[in-house]
Design a protein around this nucleic acid. Structure first.
Lengths: 204, 204
DNA sequence: TCGGACTGCCTAACATGATTAGATCATCGC
DNA sequence: GCGATGATCTAATCATGTTAGGCAGTCCGA
């Protein structure tokens, strides 16, 4: 009995290969666009034929689903990380959170499309894949409550505002900063609207 | 010489068929989704085989392009119509315009996707098809200037705000009114931000 | 009125892509 | 060593956009 290394090497290899497939898929998605991803090419990149991928994922959409989960998990992780060093004033908090989300979305077009837009025809994320997205939303919401912004409609308004800025940036000035530069102003506008204190000199 | 009816019957028939194709395409897009549109089915609806459509449109994307043009032309028409009976106060004007655009977008999901989202993989609207969209934007912009809101960043902010509300509505509560109900509040917030007068009782 | 050109549509065929079925080869526990 | 299991392959199916080439009716000029 040499120790008890009950490592399931088989399962490990399997999960490694899954990860490899997803990584290849991300690379292709970034290079050619999310919708241009083909199983043949994913296979080619990792030295496999397309049908072999079906031992690892039930379908192409299952791959998208796993990518969706990864994307939102990454976002959730970024938020958890962020919470450690959030500023103290409510207004600054809102800005920091908005900025974090904005930057995460804008940093990777393919990822953003997958996370926030219905750009893939038949794809609908599974509930499990959706879980981290809900997590992010919950985190933001709880911060809002802590800041005293507890009305549901205000929260919805904030969501729409930040989302609108992101979409406008990606759609009309990808790679630029035309709407990115408006984010702070927008949050100030929102903060004023909901009556948050702290009088940053209004640079309207 | 019986009168001079130089009607080009041939061209008429041709253009009628084009219209018929587009109409069938819209029906399918609304029924099954914009991306689920197939040439075979478009053909079937008008009693043709798929390849025959190529005498009328260069490609499937050309059909999308024509639909894109129709959608924005309709929007432009709605705006021109609207201008006749716009309210007099700046704030009310902004609201009316936002509402018009919001309702137009929300009324037809397929149309909205085509107009405002990159939901079709390889499709990029041609400059000609894009023209009415530019027209709409110009109309809104000129109203802004007339209202005294002339800073470019404020205009961009408005675009992002209205777009964000539309997207949020369609994505998270299609058919409902959760974000629709926020539109007036959002425009009030914006109007306050840019310093527009008229003191509607702040129902924050 | 006749013949050629053009119009409008069709069938056949191709390329690509997801997906399934079945065969093959390696590996691992006994 | 041997059978089961796992990993991968090839071949085939089906849907879709698109191209090539054919055929019938129509129209226009001689």
């Amino acid at each position: 009995m040499l120790g008890s290394p009950i490592r399931d090497r088989q399962a490990e290899r399997r999960s490694d290969t899954r990860a490899e497939i997803l990584e290849a898929a991300w690379v292709i998605a970034r290079e050619k666009g999310l919708a241009e991803l083909t199983l043949r090419e994913v296979g080619a990149r990792i030295g496999m034929r397309a049908p072999s991928l079906y031992s690892y994922f039930d379908s192409k959409n299952a791959i998208y689903d796993a990518m969706f989960a990864q994307a939102w998990s990454g976002c959730l992780a970024a938020f958890d990380d962020l919470e450690k060093r959030l500023p103290r004033t409510p207004r600054a908090e809102l800005k920091k959170m908005a900025r974090a989300f904005f930057d995460y979305a804008v940093a990777d077009l393919a990822r953003h499309q997958l996370m926030n837009q219905r750009t893939i025809s038949g794809f609908v994320p599974s509930t499990e894949a959706y879980a981290p997205a809900v997590g992010v939303l919950e985190r933001v919401r709880s911060h809002f409550v802590r800041c005293g912004v507890d009305r549901a409609d205000h929260f919805d308004l904030y969501i729409a505002l930040v989302g609108g800025l992101i979409d406008a940036q990606q759609a009309n000035d990808p790679g630029g900063s035309r709407w990115s530069a408006l984010l702070d102003q927008a949050i100030d506008m929102f903060a004023d609207h909901v009556g948050l204190p702290e009088s940053r000199r209004k640079s309207t």
